[in-house]
């Protein structure tokens, strides 16, 4: 049984990891940190390098949680990527960070978080960044 944590190098992402690790410690479950860049471009600012993922794992160790970092590529279907990970790892919970976005911004760019919320087959825990 595992907990999936959506991670991007942002305050929201850090908050999600924080919450995910806490849940992992409480339930004694493995945590899979999902850092999924968009397929296509050679560079994605959302992808973290090896140093950053090592730091995340260190945080997990400090919290006493067994964790791994996965970096699958996604197309226009982040929700599906999460779904297939849920199936593959036997996920019981998805943790994602939410950021505030204006109505117009949401209309133009859409909201991945919303689609994960709607399409996920397991409970989704959403957290906000620390102010």
């Amino acid at each position: 049984m595992t907990i999936l944590v959506g991670y991007l190098p942002t305050p929201e992402g850090d908050a999600a990891v924080e919450a995910g690790l806490r849940e992992g410690a409480l339930r004694s479950e493995r945590v899979v940190i999902v850092n999924s860049p968009r397929r296509g471009a050679p560079v994605d600012e959302h992808k973290i390098d090896d140093d950053a993922s090592a730091a995340l794992l260190a945080r997990a160790r400090a919290a006493g949680v067994d964790a791994e970092v996965r970096q699958p590529l996604h197309d226009d279907d982040l929700a599906e990527t999460f779904e297939s990970l849920v199936e593959e790892t036997g996920g019981t919970l998805i943790v994602i960070g939410l950021r505030h976005r204006s109505l117009v911004g949401k209309f133009i760019l859409g909201s991945e978080a919303q689609r994960i919320l709607m399409e996920a087959s397991v409970p989704v825990l959403t957290v906000k960044a620390d102010r």
């Binding site: 860049p37 968009r38 397929r39 296509g40 471009a41 050679p42 560079v43 994605d44 600012e45 992808k47 973290i48 390098d49 950053a52 590529l73």
Partner: peptide, 9 residues
């Protein structure tokens, strides 16, 4: 042919 995505350096 591009299935590699890199973190910004």
């Amino acid at each position: 042919r591009h299935n590699q995505v890199h973190a910004p350096a």
